[in-house]
Design a protein around this nucleic acid. Structure first.
Lengths: 204, 204
DNA sequence: GTATTGGCCAACTAGTTGGTTGGTTTGGTG
DNA sequence: CACCAAACCAACCAACTAGTTGGCCAATAC
């Protein structure tokens, strides 16, 4: 019993430290030794729990990253009425997290997509699956908004979802500079402006 | 005389091949040997012309990348009337380039920003300078559009510029998947939608 | 109490990296 | 022709990389 617990604990410590370093320094630029140094563990420990660096990373993506993105960017919108306002709030929250230099997992995802693009198709698939779930959820929320009378019926939900994810990923890329507070303000302001044209208007 | 030419030629060959590989595989994941192999040159040749890998990269950013971005994304908008339409056309052109798998330098820039963020502040400055020039140019174009009667006076030009760059960088990040044609279509469609609200309207 | 085994360590291998160095070729000059 | 320096090459170095191996210790099983 105690062994089981220890196993889980070590694996999770490795994954947590791994995600942090992979995000900060990039996957290829982070050595397994870097992660092990952080936790005062040895190579043997690592290769006892994981088959390879790649398999280790994939386990992080599926266990840690996916869950975090789901709870931060997908779940808060799911099933809610008035999706447009909800999306603005949700994005604003996520950007505030980023502003305080905590891990914003939406950005972590786009970072990894950039890094692995054209280099590791296997890992790319896992990353893109998360994007897909995010996109599908946005589309569903927008469509539900139409039937609930919050969103104008003439909009192309898929195109809007794509545009939303694009702008979010983009602004997070820009926020690395430091003046992230003003960037967030500008972004949310323009997001509202963009949404104005697609709010449902009471027919005359 | 001929030596001068040869020097320039070799340096430029190195820079061109370097940019290509750094973009494809990332800076840290591309060795100098990779570049030299491509050109059948030796390490001695490289270190004769450049002091270090880093100085080499900075020379690429300033000589190649900046010029390319300027001519593709900045110059076409500069001084033109009707900036909103011009921006849509310009972005569409750049995305079409990307769609055919040629180098889209706007994306190359955001790739590098992602890679060097938090790792090399020196290089980050050079990259962010290019972003600044892009942003300032967009703001200027939008302001000119106001005085020329093409753009509504109530918009926040800086916020719009930020939002434009964000969405462009973001959609390019998403376009790595492969279905870039439909992404580009969706993106341009939503860009037009976004711009609709800020076109100048003849006062009643 | 003893055998087993899960969890881990220290030391290793084979390969790669950025950068150096001593020497060779080549074009230009007096 | 002799000479020089620019342009380049080949071999090397120290540091680092992912992954392997043999062994050790503590918790569990019998």
């Amino acid at each position: 019993m105690e062994k089981q617990l220890k196993r889980m604990a070590t694996m999770q410590r490795l994954q947590t430290a791994g995600l942090e370093l992979f995000y900060q320094k990039g996957y290829y630029n982070t050595s397994i030794d870097d992660i092990l140094k952080e936790l005062s563990l040895s190579k043997g420990a690592f290769y006892y729990h994981f088959q390879s660096k790649e398999e280790f990373f994939i386990s992080i993506v599926q266990n840690l990253l996916f869950r975090k993105i789901y709870s931060a960017l997908i779940e808060p919108i799911e099933g809610e009425e008035d999706p447009l306002n909800k999306i603005v709030l949700c994005f604003d929250n996520a950007l505030e997290t980023a502003e305080h230099n905590f891990l914003d997992y939406g950005f972590v995802l786009s970072n990894f997509i950039t890094e692995f693009n054209g280099k590791n198709p296997d890992i790319m698939n896992y990353l893109q699956d998360i994007l897909k779930v995010w996109e599908v959820n946005l589309v569903t929320a927008l469509q539900k908004g139409k039937t609930d009378g919050f969103v104008s019926r003439h909009i192309d939900s898929e195109a809007v979802a794509t545009y939303l994810i694009s702008s979010y990923i983009g602004v997070r890329t820009l926020m690395v500079e430091g003046n992230s507070k003003i960037l967030r303000y500008k972004y949310i302001q323009q997001l509202r402006q963009y949404f104005k044209s697609m709010e449902y208007k009471e027919p005359a």
